[in-house]
């Protein structure tokens, strides 16, 4: 009998250690932001907006400005991933009040100011990419992008390269494949369009025509 009591007590303690209580707002804001990313990249803009507003509401419950700034930076990064400009007003307001080095570093990265970016403060997945970019060899950059595991990070990297006009067919194709694999229609159309323009620029009319037809079929 005594043994059973000991066993039960031990099990309860073990279970208690295993499951850390996660606050509601953390869980909710994380899920809402994940949904925001997915919906925006898929082209459900209205839905994405609702999710993003919910994310902000949940984070604001905690009053944690660092995380709030991260949410805004995530939104900007998603815009970069689909080659769109973003309004950085909200982030700058937070940064003025509570500057966080890591966030500011990522902001510079999104703005394309790679010279001022501190590699050590940047999320780890961009290490190789930034190194290759600084070396300036386009094949290496393409290789490093293809090595990034997270699909959104991959598109962010390609988006930044498009902004800087440092890309080739291979890099655009990585973005097209990534968007296609994840079912991100909005991103897919953006990069197909970019690829189309690229072929037109290179006077590869047949390839351009094929991409154009593909775009039309997808848009239907």
């Amino acid at each position: 009998m005594k043994n059973i009591v000991y066993l039960l007590t031990f099990s309860i303690i073990l279970l208690g250690c295993g499951s850390k209580q996660i606050p509601d707002w953390t869980n909710a804001s994380f899920n809402q932001l994940e949904n925001y990313k997915k919906n925006y990249l898929s082209g459900n803009e209205h839905r994405a907006e609702l999710y993003f507003n919910k994310t902000l509401d949940d984070i604001k419950k905690s009053g944690d400005l660092e995380i709030l700034a991260r949410a805004y930076l995530t939104q900007y990064a998603v815009h970069v991933a689909v080659i769109e400009a973003f309004d950085d007003g909200e982030y700058l307001r937070i940064d003025a009040l509570q500057p966080v080095l890591q966030n500011r570093n990522f902001y510079s990265f999104l703005k394309g100011s790679f010279d001022t970016v501190d590699k050590r403060l940047l999320p780890q997945q961009y290490d190789g990419f930034l190194r290759a970019f600084r070396k300036g060899k386009i094949e290496d950059i393409a290789y490093e992008i293809s090595r990034i595991e997270d699909p959104l990070s991959k598109l962010i990297a390609v988006g930044l390269l498009v902004q800087k006009n440092t890309y080739d067919e291979g890099i655009l194709k990585i973005a097209v494949d990534t968007a296609s694999h994840n079912g991100w229609k909005r991103a897919l159309l953006v990069y197909l369009d970019k690829l189309h323009s690229f072929y037109e620029m290179k006077k590869e009319t047949q390839k351009a025509a094929n991409i154009e037809q593909k775009i039309q079929l997808i848009k239907k």
Binding site: I22, F106, D150
Partner: peptide, 20 residues
């Protein structure tokens, strides 16, 4: 209901907002 389910079943990913 969703938040309750999420509480019971934490997802594989750590629910922490990180920079993408």
């Amino acid at each position: 209901l969703v938040s309750d389910i999420n509480k019971i079943l934490p997802s594989k990913k750590e629910p922490e907002i990180k920079l993408p």
